[in-house]
Design a binder for these strands. Structure first.
Length: 555
RNA sequence: AGCCCGAUGGUGUAAUUGGCAACACAGCUGGUUUUGGUCCAGUCAUUCUAGGUUCGAGUCCUAGUCGGGCUGCCA
C-alpha cells in the first residue's frame, strides 16, 4: 500500500479514539477468532482485515485465536488452512496464536465460581423440554424445576458431568439469569454441555465443553483483547458477553463492537451454501477459482493487496452491505495493471497467411514487458508467414467504428508490422477458415516513416513459433446479482461459469511461473494454475480487461 | 408479536458534529493511446415519509414506514 494512502475512518475507530483520549487503554488489542471447521472466504477477510488494520494503525497487537469449543466439527487441517490463508493475506500475529481449548481449565474454574455464587446450576431438562421452557419471541420462559438446586448439589452434579458419569445431553450447566428476559440469550443460557467426543487438541481430556458464549468473551479477557470486533449477528449476545465479564473475576474488560458482514453480488457466502456447491459437485472443491474462498481466489490469481484494498473500500458500518462485485474486479485490475508482464496469446485462433512474407523465415521483434514501466524490460516476439489472430479481430462486413481487420483494411500487428487483408478463405458452409494478407515491409517495427495512421492494433501469435495453452475462462458463478432472488441458489448457477479452451501463446510464456501475474494483451489478466504440467501449461483467467467495445456490441 | 439494530444516487462509504451533500465503483459522453487497456475530462441525489424546533436540518424532537437479526446442548 502506498504512502499517500489515508487511514480509514469508521465508527469503530471513532470509539477507539474517544477511549484513547479518555486514557482508557495503554495498547489496543484485537483478534480474529475463526472456528477451525471450514475455509475462509472473502467475507472473513473483511473481519480479519478490519481487526488487523486497527491493531496496526494503533500500534497495537493482533491475535489469531481458534475458537474451538465444538470438537464434533473441528479439525487440525482447518487450523492449517486458516493459517495458510492469513499468511497469504499478509496478516501477522507473531507469538499471538491462541486456542480457546487452551482455556478449558480456566473456563471450568470460572464455571465453579458461578455455581458457588449461585449464578449457575445443573439442569436435567431434555433438549425438547428446554425448548418448551424457554418460551418464544413474545412469551416469557419459565424456570426449570432444577433451577434452585443448592450449591453443593450443583457442584457434585457438575463434577460428575466432568467425570463422564452421564451420557451426552443428559445434563447441562446453565447460568441463572432471567427466564423472562426479552433477549432470549439471557434466558438461562447453557454454559456447558456433555460431549463424549475426541477433541483434535485435548483428545479425551474433557467430556464437557463450554459453549461459544461462555468461552468467547472470557478468552478475550484472558488475552487482554480491548476491542472484540465481530459481526452483527452477535449483537444480541452482547448483554450476555457483558454479563460474564461483570460476574466473573476476569483479568480485563474487553468491549464487543459489532459491524455488518460483507456480501457480494453474484456470490453466496454462507458456509452451508458453499459446502452445498462443493458437495453437489457444482464446483471442483474449495479451491475452485470460482469460489469466493481465499484459497479459491489465490488459485485464480487474485493478489492479497487487491483484497486489502477492496476491504478498505468496503468500509465498516452497521448497514447491511451488498457490494457490487465490480468493485472487487476494479481493485484487482488496479493492482495487476502495475504488476503484470504483458504477453500475447490468441484464445480463439483464426489463421492468417502473409503471402509476401518469406516461407520458413522468422523475424523477431522487441516488445516492452509493460507499456508504462521501463524497468520491466522487453522480450522478443516472433513473426512468421503463418500466424494466428483472434477470430473476432476480423469481420467480413464490419459495422461502423470497427477498427480491426476487414477485407482491404490495414491493421497493425502489435510490435511487428502492418498487414492488409486481401482474401478470405471459406469452407463450403461459408465458415471463415483463413485470411490471406500482405504486409508492408516498410512497416517493420510497427510504424512507418510516412506517419500514416493505422487505427487498429491487434495481437497475434506465430503459427509455428508458439506454446499451446489450456486456458480456463471464468465467469460469475451465479447469473443473478442476488443468487437467491428466485429461490434456490442452485437453480441460479451459471452454466457457463467455466469454459476450458485451447489457446496459443507467444514463446516467452514458457518461462512463466506459478504466481506470476500476466496480462494477455487486450484479453485480461491470467495466472498459471497448479494443474500445469510439462506437457501443458494451464492458465486461469483472473479477470478480464475492461471492455468498452464488447460492452457496446452487446447492446 | 417481544427485544436489538439499521435507513444518504444503481452500489459502497463520507459530511468540520446544526452551515453550499463529498469520494469511489458501476453507467453514460468525449480526449489521449502501438492494448477498444491504462491515463485524463465531463455527466449522473428533492439524504425513507409526515409533522415540528431553528435564520438555517442528512444531522435535533415527535409519529410512522421499510429492511435486517434473535426462539441450537452451533459459532
Amino acid at each position: 500500500m502506498s504512502e499517500g494512502d489515508t487511514r480509514p475512518t469508521n465508527f469503530i475507530r471513532d470509539i477507539i479514539d474517544e477511549e484513547l483520549a479518555a486514557g482508557k487503554h495503554e495498547v489496543i488489542v484485537t483478534r480474529f477468532p475463526p472456528e477451525p471447521n471450514g475455509y475462509l472466504h472473502i467475507g472473513h477477510s473483511k473481519a480479519i482485515l478490519t481487526n488487523y488494520s486497527i491493531a496496526q494503525d494503533y500500534n497495537g497487537r493482533f491475535h489469531l485465536r481458534m475458537d474451538d469449543t465444538n470438537p464434533s466439527k473441528e479439525d487440525m487441517s482447518y487450523v492449517e488452512a486458516i493459517i495458510n490463508d492469513l499468511t497469504w493475506l499478509g496478516v501477522e500475529w507473531g507469538e499471538s496464536l491462541f486456542f480457546a481449548s487452551d482455556y478449558y481449565q480456566q473456563l471450568y474454574e470460572w464455571a465453579l465460581f458461578l455455581i458457588n455464587e449461585c449464578r449457575a446450576y445443573v439442569d436435567d431438562l431434555s433438549l425438547e423440554e428446554m425448548k418448551e421452557y424457554r418460551g418464544n419471541l413474545t412469551e416469557p420462559g419459565k424456570n426449570s424445576p432444577y433451577r434452585d438446586r443448592g450449591v453443593e448439589e450443583n457442584l457434585d452434579l457438575f463434577a460428575k458431568m466432568k467425570n463422564g458419569e452421564y451420557e451426552d445431553g443428559a445434563k447441562v450447566l446453565r447460568a441463572k439469569i432471567d427466564m423472562a428476559h426479552p433477549n432470549l440469550n439471557m434466558r438461562d443460557p447453557v454454559l456447558y454441555r456433555i460431549l463424549h467426543h475426541n477433541h483434535y487438541r485435548t483428545a479425551d481430556e474433557w467430556c464437557i465443553y463450554p459453549m461459544y458464549d461462555f468461552a468467547h468473551g472470557q478468552g478475550d479477557a484472558i488475552e487482554g483483547i480491548t476491542h472484540s470486533i465481530c459481526s452483527l449477528e452477535f449483537e444480541n449476545h452482547r448483554p450476555l458477553y457483558d454479563w460474564f465479564i461483570e460476574n466473573l473475576p476476569v483479568p480485563s474488560k474487553p468491549r464487543q463492537i459489532e459491524f455488518s458482514r460483507l456480501n457480494l453480488t453474484h456470490t453466496v457466502m454462507s458456509k452451508r451454501k458453499l459446502l452445498a456447491l462443493v458437495e453437489g459437485g457444482y464446483v471442483n472443491g474449495w479451491d475452485d477459482p470460482r469460489m469466493p474462498t481465499l484459497i479459491g481466489y489465490r488459485r485464480r490469481g487474485y493478489t492479497p493487496e487487491s483484497i486489502h484494498e477492496f476491504s478498505k473500500r468496503a468500509g465498516v458500518t452497521k448497514q447491511n452491505q451488498v457490494i457490487d462485485i465490480s468493485l472487487l474486479d476494479f481493485c484487482l485490475r488496479q493492482d495487476l495493471e502495475l504488476k503484470a508482464m504483458r504477453r500475447m496469446a490468441v484464445l480463439d485462433p483464426l489463421k492468417v497467411t502473409i503471402t509476401n512474407f518469406p516461407e520458413g523465415e522468422v523475424e523477431w521483434y522487441e516488445g516492452p514487458n509493460h507499456p508504462g514501466i521501463e524497468s520491466f524490460g522487453t522480450r522478443m516476439v516472433p513473426l512468421t508467414r503463418e500466424l494466428y489472430i483472434e477470430r473476432d479481430d476480423f469481420m467480413e462486413d464490419p459495422p461502423r467504428k470497427y477498427f480491426r481487420l476487414a477485407p482491404g483494411r490495414e491493421v497493425r500487428l502489435r510490435y511487428a508490422c502492418y498487414i492488409t487483408a486481401k482474401e478470405v478463405v471459406k469452407d463450403e458452409d461459408g465458415n471463415i477458415l483463413e485470411i490471406i494478407a500482405e504486409f508492408d515491409p516498410e512497416s517493420r517495427g510497427a510504424s512507418t516513416l510516412d506517419g500514416r495512421k493505422v487505427k487498429g492494433t491487434i495481437h497475434f501469435v506465430s503459427a509455428s513459433e508458439n506454446v499451446p495453452l489450456e486456458v480456463r475462462m471464468y465467469d460469475h458463478l451465479f447469473l443473478n446479482e442476488d443468487p437467491e432472488a428466485d429461490g434456490d441458489f442452485i437453480q441460479n448457477l451459471n452454466p457457463d461459469s467455466l469454459k476450458v479452451i485451447t489457446a496459443y501463446g507467444e514463446p516467452e510464456l514458457k518461462g512463466a511461473k506459478l504466481g506470476d501475474p500476466i496480462q494477455f494483451e487486450r484479453k485480461g489478466y491470467f495466472s498459471i494454475d497448479p494443474d500445469s504440467s510439462e506437457e501443458m501449461i494451464v492458465f486461469n483467467r483472473t479477470v478480464g480487461l475492461r471492455d468498452s467495445w464488447g460492452k457496446k456490441q452487446r447492446k
